[in-house]
Design a protein around this nucleic acid. Structure first.
Lengths: 340, 340
DNA sequence: CTGTTAGCGCGTTCAT
DNA sequence: ATGAACGCGCTAACAG
């Protein structure tokens, strides 16, 4: 590759003039400007972003660490982040922690080493203190994505999990359900904590009626618990707090020979793509995952711009609204039929 | 951040010694080595990958451009690439072309500007000549992913689309199907060309029996054609050549009031996650998308290593086998019932 | 309006 | 076994 020096020589100007033409950073006589442009054309020169980053001490890149790249919801967030980043002229460096704190820490270190201008983190349940401190330090700025919490020392973008679960549960209560089986999952994850809280806000306590809440970190254990509880046939409605949990629940239901919605109503968060093309169509609280990614980049960008001028402002939290998609899995449940 | 100079001063050694300790690139007296390590610890020093890349003229990073980050299959490839890259100590720069040649070209330019050591491309149907030339140039090395073709000037990783479609069609023929409706889609995309070719290898021509092949770039047009053809009720089996095409086809079937597999058999490529939890379970030729991503990184790495020593070897193509997952959508079709 | 020059932080000769 | 010094390619401050 040609360097800026060769271009300068060919155009009989200094390297600084070439640089200024390239970046539009000061006035250049149209004639010399043309000479430079021609020389660039002739040599096939392209700026070297590495050298440029070195000199300007910014890379025009951001890092994204997701905790489970396999989940469709996270894939959509990645997509949204990529889209917005490209739109802003930022390059995206992607890493995956696979829900593991050490991998997450390594990923963050790598990205810092590469001097990303900012960081977007969908963290795993228990980050290392190293990562916590890095987030708190504020440089580079960090935006927490999806897994947000009160009192975080940085900007964050999440969904209105608690409110959405409340809406869902209220809807189901109004339909007559009292005996819920809530598959809450790993409630160390803020998203799942919030969803469970939303349920508790409006629904009967455990022990009242036959409502049961199943928490748990270990999927194998969870599956066993689920099978045991379902076998009792006490519930009229299953609520899964996330899509992986829904998969486990649906598998258990099938093994128990229970059909949705004939034998039991069903609802979940996150949901399945094209759900309405298949039976049963599943009632879902859908995350605006793509938009959350976009919003995270927006926040990061504002933070970057303000950090170059004003004094640091306080952390902000944005919650995007989720959409309650009512479908047959809950709507077509019939109490009379199910009692038979 | 502390620099190597501060570490050197604190340890009372030269920067070069620090560098050698860091990279293990020459013998260092255990005592001085310890002093250096302590100084690193004390200052919280971390190598600057930007400066390092500048000096070594390699970045230990690779670029990935996918053509549709929204598709689950591509998301899985991204996941695989990320996984393998991290494992090899490479950082992943991600871009999305959204099936648009200009965006693809921009993405490639950006990544080259960033001096990625190599490039993985799942290209859009008609790349710009600029991209073609870049691929052909061989530096940095490129691996084509998913959308591969004969005579490509570089390494590539794809799936055995033609053979898999052959297996699928043969299976359906053996089951008694003769009147196929093949939703082939945009056959400028090599993947879809190959799948159609596989069908043609073993199945009746258009016009023989009632077999119909629907090609087309425009989804709206395709949908209209599909509706028109389905209305004739001539076919016993729909084959969708990709998952987006399957979505369109299933929607049309629903609008036509046709049920799978009662009225018509159905099979697709790529498929839907957790398909067997829902009705109808769809017969699918499933891509090993994650593994394809991993394989692409592997190929790229070999190419990088060999390019640093031997002379360039000829392009290689790897085809991973797809899995034929037979399910009720095709297996439970009953010719006798359908005729009524 | 344009040119000269000093680094950004590191790895790497070449000396010692 | 260690250090001094140069330069990767670029931008920005200063000078004219």
């Amino acid at each position: 590759m040609a360097t800026i020096v060769e271009v300068a020589q060919l155009a009989r100007v200094s390297t600084s003039t070439v640089s200024h033409v390239l970046n539009g950073t000061r006035k250049v006589e149209p004639k010399t400007r043309k000479r430079v442009l021609d020389a660039i054309e002739k040599t096939g020169y392209r700026q070297d972003a590495v050298a440029r980053a070195m000199r300007r001490s910014r890379t025009d890149s951001i890092g994204l660490v997701v905790s489970d790249a396999g989940e469709p919801a996270f894939a959509e967030m990645v997509h949204g982040v990529e889209h917005a980043a490209t739109e802003q002229g930022l390059t995206l460096l992607l890493a995956n922690s696979a829900e593991d704190a050490d991998r997450e820490a390594r990923a963050v270190r790598t990205l810092l080493t590469r001097r990303v201008d900012g960081l977007i983190l969908a963290r795993c349940p228990l980050s290392t203190v190293e990562v916590e401190q890095q987030v708190a330090s504020g440089s580079p700025p960090v935006v927490l994505l999806d897994r947000v919490y009160d009192g975080a020392p940085c900007d964050q973008v999440g969904a209105d999990n608690r409110e959405s679960m409340r809406r869902l549960a209220e809807h189901l209560l109004a339909a007559g359900h009292r005996d819920f089986l809530v598959v809450a999952g790993d409630t160390r994850v803020p998203t799942l904590t919030e969803r469970l809280a939303g349920f508790r806000d409006v629904a009967p306590r455990d022990g009242d009626d036959a409502t049961t809440v199943l928490e748990g970190t270990d999927p194998v254990q969870l599956r066993a618990d689920l099978a045991r509880v379902l076998a009792r046939r006490e519930h009229t409605c299953v609520i899964a707090a996330s899509s992986p949990l829904a998969v486990v629940a649906l598998e258990c239901l099938r093994e128990e020979g229970m059909q949705v919605p004939r034998d039991i109503a069903f609802a979940t968060f996150d949901g399945f793509d094209h759900s309405d093309l298949f039976q049963p169509p599943i009632t879902t609280v859908r995350q605006p995952a793509f938009d959350m990614g976009v919003a995270a980049v927006g926040m990061l960008l504002e933070r970057l711009q303000s950090s170059r001028s004003e004094r640091p402002s306080s952390p902000r939290t944005t919650r995007l609204q989720q959409r309650l998609e009512l479908r047959a899995s809950s709507e077509d449940f019939d109490f009379a039929v199910a009692r038979d």
